[in-house]
Nucleic acid binder design. Structure first.
Length: 205
DNA sequence: CGACCGATTGACT
DNA sequence: GTCAATCGGTCGG
């Protein structure tokens, strides 16, 4: 798995079986994992500190609630792929597809803690017209996409490939996991399907 | 076709 | 706290 000459090998990629589970389980278990992007000689790594689960046809807040369309097709496919959508005419948000094909579960990545490549993340944000405020670098679903340059073309990326993937990161004790209502939705507000790391400064709210 | 609005962000009364 | 930006998806006529 490690490519021979690497002096500080990354942990192993999460297997397909990690993603092929209910969205709520995947969401909770993604806390503490590392999102990795390799592009050219740049390496970006962020610890996942805030996510939200979306449960396909069972969930009126999910883009998949009313069935498969061209936009949400990735969610209906195999688990372990990236679903990226464009919203508010200017922002992208990234989800990890979970469940089994047809179920359309997904986990929205809402905030990361920069682990490696922060200076490149800052350049990526500026390139997108984003502000230089480092405290907001990877805090919020659209900001983290700017920092990692996740846009329309990243929709459908296989997370078992070599460009964008997720690895084992840091173990998260149960006592650090906070469950709360999802942000910015107008339906199913009562569902506590948002998971975050207690006390982490990168959590969006 | 037109109207409405969004899993957001940043600027500002 | 409020609100505009900006455009593609969705739905009604």
């Amino acid at each position: 798995m490690n490519s021979g000459s690497s002096r500080t090998p990354l942990p192993q990629k999460l297997p397909r079986s990690f993603y092929a589970r209910p969205a709520l389980r995947v969401a909770r278990d993604l806390l503490g994992k590392y999102l990795v992007r390799k592009s050219g000689r740049h390496l970006l790594v962020g610890k996942i500190v805030e996510v939200e689960a979306y449960q396909g046809s069972l969930d009126p807040a999910s883009h998949a609630y009313r069935g498969k369309t061209a936009r949400n097709a990735v969610m209906f496919g195999e688990a372990g792929y990236l679903y990226v959508y464009f919203t508010y005419g200017m922002h992208y948000c990234a989800n990890v597809v979970s469940e089994s094909p047809g179920k359309a579960g997904a986990v929205l990545l809402r905030a990361l803690e920069p682990i490696h490549g922060a200076s490149q993340m800052i350049r990526n944000r500026k390139r997108n017209g984003g502000k230089a405020n480092e405290a907001l670098l990877t805090r919020g679903p659209a900001r983290l996409c700017q920092a990692f340059r996740i846009e329309r073309r990243e929709n459908g990326t296989d997370l078992l490939g070599d460009e964008i993937f997720i690895t084992e990161g840091e173990a998260v004790p149960r006592s650090l996991v906070v469950r709360s209502p999802r942000i910015g939705i107008r339906v199913a507000k009562e569902k506590k399907w948002r998971f975050s790391l207690k006390g982490n400064r990168w959590v969006s709210a």
